[in-house]
Simulated scan of single mutants.
Amino acid sequence: MHRLAAGVLTFVSAALIAANVCSAERWATLPAFPPMPAAKTSGMAPINDIQMYYAEYGEGDPILFTHGGLGSADVWGYQIANFLKDHRVIVADSRGHGRSTRSEQPFGYDLMTSDYVALLDYLKLDKVTLVGWSDGGIIGIDMAMKNPEKLTRVIAQAANVTTDGLKADVMTNKTFSDYIDVAGETYKKLSRTPGEYDAFVTQISAMWASEPAWTADDLARIKVPVTLVIGDHDEAIKLDHTEMMAKQIPGSKLVILRDTSHFAMLQDPEGYNAMIRDAMAGR
C-alpha cells in the first residue's frame, strides 16, 4: 500500500477509535451546565408555605421540566433552548432548591407535587407534558397518580418508586459525587439562604430514607401516558427497577439511553431532546 494512503488510513482508524472511546465514556463525566436562555417571564410564586421560583420560555403546547434532588431549573438549559422554539416551556426550582425557599414542614413527594400543581394553577395552565429527572420524575409519577387532570403525559427519567430501586454504592461513584459538589456550589450562588446547604440536605435526606413507597396497585391505577427513561450507565437507579415500573404502569413505554448515566440531559442533549419529541409524538 502507498505509504501516504497507509498513513491516512492509520490516522482515520485512530480517530474512529478515539471517537468511539469518547462516545462510550461520556457517561463517566459530568458536563458543565449550559447557559440558560433569557426567560420570557420569571418570578417568585407564593405556593403553599414557600416562595417558588419559576421561569417561562417560548409559546405553544406547554412542557414543564422538573429537576432532580439538590439541583435547580438550571440543569435544563439544553432542553429549554430546543423546546422554546415551538413550545411554552416552564421550569421551576423545587421547594428548598435553587432560588425557592423552604419551610420547617418535612419534605415529602406528595408535598412537592402539590407545589407544582399549585404553580400550574398560578400560571393558569390546565394541562402540561411533564418531563422529570430523578426526583422530578418521581414528582411526575406522583402527579400522574394524584392529579392526572393536570397532565397530558409524563416522561420520567431515572425515577424510582420504592427506596430499594436505588443502587447501594451510588454515593461512592465519582460522577455522582461530582454532581453533589456542583449542586452545593450552585446552591450557594442561587439560594436566599446560601449558608444552609447542609441543613437543607439533612432535611431532604429524611424524605429519601423512606420515600417513595408505592405499591404495584398504586402504579396500576395510573391512566396518564408514561414514558420511563434510564441511561444504560445510571449511577443511582437500578435498571431492573425501571423495567419493573414499566411492567406495572399500564401502557407505559421504556426507553434506555445509550452511553449515558443519571445525567443524560447534559451528556447527550441531542439524543435526550429527540427522546422527548418521540415520546410526545407517541413513538
Rank of each mutant, 00 (worst) to 15 (best):
T163S: 07
Y179I: 10
I180T: 02
R192D: 12
N173P: 08
T163W: 10
A159L: 14
Y179A: 12
D169I: 02
N160W: 05
N173L: 07
N173F: 02
N160S: 04
V161N: 07
P148M: 12
V182S: 10
E196R: 02
R153H: 06
L190K: 01
T162Y: 11
A183K: 04
Y179Q: 13
E196A: 05
Y179W: 14
L151N: 03
K188Y: 05
K150D: 07
T193A: 09
Y197V: 00
P194C: 14
A156I: 13
D178K: 05
G184P: 07
R192F: 15
K150N: 05
T152L: 14
P148I: 15
N147Q: 07
V161E: 07
V154G: 03
M171R: 10
G184V: 07
E196T: 04
T193Q: 12
T175D: 00
D178H: 05
K174Q: 00
V170W: 15
Y179S: 09
V170C: 13
S191F: 15
D164L: 01
K150I: 05
L151M: 04
K167N: 08
A156N: 11
V154D: 02
T193Y: 11
I155Y: 10
M171H: 08
L151F: 04
A156Q: 13
T172V: 02
S177A: 14
K189D: 10
E196W: 01
K167L: 11
A156S: 15
G165I: 01
D164K: 01
M171D: 12
V170M: 15
L166W: 06
F176T: 05
K167F: 09
N160P: 04
L190P: 02
V154W: 03
E196Y: 01
T152M: 14
E185L: 10
P194S: 12
K150H: 06
A156E: 11
I155V: 13
T163M: 09
N147W: 12
A158C: 07
A156V: 14
N160Q: 06
A158N: 03
V161P: 08
D164T: 03
G165C: 01
G184N: 10
T193P: 09
L166V: 03
G184K: 12
M171C: 06
N173D: 15
A168W: 14
M171S: 11
R153E: 06
L190R: 03
E185D: 10
D178T: 09
T175M: 01
R153N: 09
V154P: 04
K146L: 06
D164H: 03
K174I: 03
V182C: 11
V161Y: 08
F176N: 03
T172Y: 00
R153A: 04
V161D: 05
L190Y: 02
